[in-house]
Design a protein around this nucleic acid. Structure first.
Lengths: 214, 214
DNA sequence: GCAAAAGTGTTTGAGGTACACCCATGC
DNA sequence: GCATGGGTGTACCTCAAACACTTTTGC
């Protein structure tokens, strides 16, 4: 089947920067490319936009196909379209940022053709295309727009300790936060409530578990 | 000349929301369409992205062609790509926001085929395509990201009175500002300096003129 | 008992907001 | 002289930042 136009058309893809917090650090999902171009390098999950599909719908579809996430927060970062960013043809990509708790990701790790993994954002491997630049913009966006409430709602699992939430906030902002000020602000936000459970297991005093208030 | 692909490709355009401040109100440039679809309705300036041209370069080119602006602040708002937004074919548009002082715009007003005009954003005419939605997003973006310094640098002419600057800030934010607080903050910002000139002409005390500090 | 993280209040400074009157000009 | 916008200072309140010790557990 061939499709013909009277002036040249670029291809359009969506790519998704899937952020999560793992071990108190900000991390993103990357997929190892199996084919030319950039075979062996890591890249953002993504793919072509179907001709009858909205951009956001395409992003959701790719997100589901590559991470198993069926419902996640998704926001558009923007379009990237330098003429030479893909050696195959002119490709304009629309990038979305997804946020999800690490325990909801289902990566097809090391299954076969392509490997999907989480990488801490300070330890990214060599990236295909202009994806390093794209992730840079995504990190910048997340750093200065995600506040405590958004982090609690979108990056934390169902229940968590206040220290875990604080570490997530520190991972996103990239700066240390004072424990008492953090808890004072949380109390004022009326954002979380204690579940009544305790998290046992550390060689230290057990921490109360919290959840998002409805 | 025909261009053939083995899967369908959308067309990609750039559209530009050119904001300025006129008579103390926020205004945007619109162009009246001469042809189907939406003949007679008003639309954002824009056009197709050339196959070898970056998105930003395309936006600058269209901006120059349709408003005479050769250097303006330009930032990407995002991509809009619902499948049915253009009845001719699938068109994905990447939207940029431009900011310029009103005295630098050179609109080809009423010349012939297409008419270009400024409209106050609270008095927009019926718009073509999904441009009403796009302008809505652009206004939202500008409202919560443009601060006093950006307004002074990007929307004001070479010299201006403090009241003019204040009115511009009020037009952008959509809320009234206290005069003394505004001037106190301006002083703290060390953003502007008096030119020494006065603006005569009103039936009242003449105002000092200011310029951006280098 | 010691290492390791949990939990808990007060003080200070900066910045934002509210608010009212006199001044210089054109008519 | 009056209408019109230009120009000026103080008091209060809110919010962010700095800062140290006790508690509970595992080993």
């Amino acid at each position: 089947m061939a499709y013909t136009y009277d002036h040249p058309h670029p291809a359009v893809t969506v790519d998704i920067v899937v952020f999560t917090v793992k071990a108190g650090r900000l991390a993103a999902v990357l997929i190892q490319r199996a084919e030319w171009p950039h075979a062996g390098k890591w890249a953002l999950p993504g793919g072509f936009v179907d001709i009858d599909e909205s951009l956001k719908r395409a992003a959701f579809r790719e997100l589901r196909e590559e991470t198993g996430l069926s419902a996640a927060y998704l926001e558009q970062l923007g379009a990237f379209g330098r003429p030479d960013r893909d050696p195959r043809e002119r490709v304009i990509t629309v990038v979305y940022i997804a946020l999800a708790p690490a325990d909801r990701l289902e990566l097809q790790a090391g299954s076969d053709a392509q490997d999907a993994r989480l990488f801490y954002v300070e330890e990214l491997p060599e990236l295909a295309f202009d994806h390093a630049r794209i992730i840079g913009h995504a990190i910048e966006r997340v750093r200065d727009r995600l506040d405590t409430a958004a982090i609690a709602r979108r990056l934390m699992p169902k229940s968590f300790t206040l220290s875990e939430l604080q570490h997530a906030c520190e991972a996103v902002s990239g700066t240390p936060i004072d424990k008492r000020n953090f808890r004072k602000k949380l109390a004022a936000l009326e954002l979380v409530e204690a579940t009544g459970e305790l998290l046992q297991g550390g060689a230290h005093r057990p921490a109360k578990l919290f959840r998002i208030k409805p």
